[in-house]
Amino acid sequence: MLVKSIVDHEDEVQVREEESDGALLVEISVHEDDIGRIIGKRGRVIKAIRTLVWATAPPEQRVLVELAE
């Protein structure tokens, strides 16, 4: 899941993974100034990240990708 680090200029990217109800929760937290950048115009960037994460995970694995506040 190192994929995220490609988008940000800061080194303050953290990715936390957690198992909940059979789904894998991936929580991304970034520097305040990077939040806009990681969401993108109309959520385009975060959507692309989700698409890529889903493709990376095994097909039967449910994955939720959230952005930490």
Binding site: V7, V45, K47, A48, I49, T51, L52
Partner: peptide, 13 residues
């Protein structure tokens, strides 16, 4: 879909 997402992110990066 995946290929387009990948291309989009790499372009941004």
């Amino acid at each position: 879909k995946t290929l387009n997402a990948l291309q989009y992110l790499i372009n941004i990066a």
